[in-house]
Structure formats: C-alpha cells, structure tokens
Design a protein around this nucleic acid. Sequence first.
DNA 1: TCCTAACAGTTAGGTTGCCTAAATATCAAG
DNA 2: CTTGATATTTAGGCAACCTAACTGTTAGGA
Lengths: 148, 148
Amino acid sequence: MNTNQADDALLALAQSFREALRQSVYVMRRLDSEEQLSSAQLGVLKMALDGGARVGGIARNLGVKVPSATEQIIKLERAGLVKREADPDDSRAVRVAATAAGRAAVENADRRRNEFIAGILGTLSPAERDAVQAALPVFDKINHSVQS
Amino acid sequence: MNTNQADDALLALAQSFREALRQSVYVMRRLDSEEQLSSAQLGVLKMALDGGARVGGIARNLGVKVPSATEQIIKLERAGLVKREADPDDSRAVRVAATAAGRAAVENADRRRNEFIAGILGTLSPAERDAVQAALPVFDKINHSVQS
DNA sequence: TCCTAACAGTTAGGTTGCCTAAATATCAAG
DNA sequence: CTTGATATTTAGGCAACCTAACTGTTAGGA
C-alpha cells in the first residue's frame, strides 16, 4: 500500500538520521576534548556576551534546567570569564555578563572550533558542501520541533 | 581575495554546522530521556547481536575507551540482555553476545526511536526530507574523517 | 624451556554535565 | 501584611566518559 511504503521510507530515513545523530555526539565530544572551554561553558558564555543574560533565560536557551546553568556560570565566574551581579530591576534575578577575558575566550574558542570544522569541510567536494548547507536549516527546524 | 572569500564561506558553514551539532546533542538527549535503554547501551547491545563481539572491538566501534565499554556491558549483563563468555581461541578475550531478551530489547528500542524521529520527519516537506537524505552520507563522511 | 613484552579486560578513582528536590530570597496581589 | 508565584542556589544523585594501575594470557626470542 502507498501509505505503508511512505511510512517505511520515513522509518528508513529516521534510522539513518539517528545514526548521524550518534555520530554528531561523537564529533561534538572530540571537538570538546581539543579545547579548554567545554561547549556547555561556551554556550553559557556566548549568552552572556551582550551583558545582561539571566540564569533562567540562559538555561531555557540552552535546553537545560536552571541548576545546570548555575553550575556552568559558577565555573565561568571562577575562571574570571563572567561576572554575576544583582538585577537592578528585580533583586531575585541575577545578571550574568561576560568580562573582557570572557569575550576574548569566546572569540578564541569559536575561531579554533570553526577552523577545526572548516578543515574537515574543506576536504569535501562542492556538491557535498552544498548538501550540508542545504540540510542545516532543516536540522534547525527539526531541533525546534523536538524542543517544543 | 578569492582564497579568503572561500575561507570565509567555509568558516561560516563551519559555524552553522557547529550549531547543528549542538542541537543534535540536544535531540539525542531528548531521545534518550524517553527510553529505558540509553543510546550508549543500545550501541553496545547492537554490536552484540551477531553473537561474538569482543570488548575492544565494541569500544573501538563506538569511539570510546575499553573501560567505558566494559561498564556498559556489565550493566547490560546485569539486565540480562547480554552474556559474557571466554573466547575459545584466546582466553584473554571475552565474547559478548546478546540474549534473546537483548535481541527483543534492541528491536523494541530501535522501533520506538525510529518512530519518534519519523514522526518529526513526517512534518517536513518533501524537499526538506530530500535535503536531509542528501546530507546524511556527507555527515557520515565527516564523522569518519573526525575519527581518524 | 622460560622470560618478557605486548595484549585483553577489569577495577579503582576521578571528572563533567545533567537532573530533582528542597532551601532562600524577593516580588506582587489582595 | 500575608501568601502564592518567581528566580536562583544548594544538596544530593546518576550516567557516561576518562586515565592509571592490576590480572591474566599469549607469543617470540634467548
């Protein structure tokens, strides 16, 4: 039946997709192991760049619970990369802001990580790069449907 | 200059790619949280399906160190999903084989996870699904270059 | 033959990143 | 001025990974 064929194709695609997900986790781990700043910390730090991120917002944005965000923020604070200060408008809240060192660390980490990935992407054919480029927005969309 | 333009494009693609990687980790986590069998365990268990995987081979295949593989194998053994037996040809080695319960568990977990992903993929347009399909082999290739 | 280096796996101990539940402090509404 | 909601931190735990050290086995010389 047509419906079943469609389902089967979708399930087969899902299977391949899952395999790619597994691989992505591996690549991510590898990327992290090469650097000083973990990607969890980098994520938090990036959010603190604009100067006034709140803990809850950071957590929501990264898809983790608030205590997990707090944990990373404390580590970054100890490393001198962010500072925490009371929100002037709401004393319950905390504003997390990157320090100058934090800003520099983000730039550095981002550059190094991008160069690492770019090095790999550079070995692909133009057609392959195009395939990646075309798929990225779809991956984005998939992620958002998972979050919701 | 042309070279710099190419580099910039590559770095920009790398940046987007990294973002997708980050998202993949999130999706993977979500997928794991819905299930009884973690993806680490599922990976090991799948490798034990044929009946005679060795610990070192499992570890290499999953991109983890031997003790990490041992740890997962022990958990699976305690759950009755695999059994460990001495390799008849080399008493240093251990053969890890899925039990009947293990085989059933793989099928179940795989089906449920594929259905979850297929549910998401089903909301995409045909063009978007094609984009994903086209990119998956490239992702595979990228993974292999990271491993090496 | 026997010794030793290489190899396969396990054990011990540590790290990171995530989680839930409970405590603390503040806000805002009645 | 009390009470419920909100923002964060603290405490305690868990999963998956790692390195270093240990046990047992194999295999290649001297």
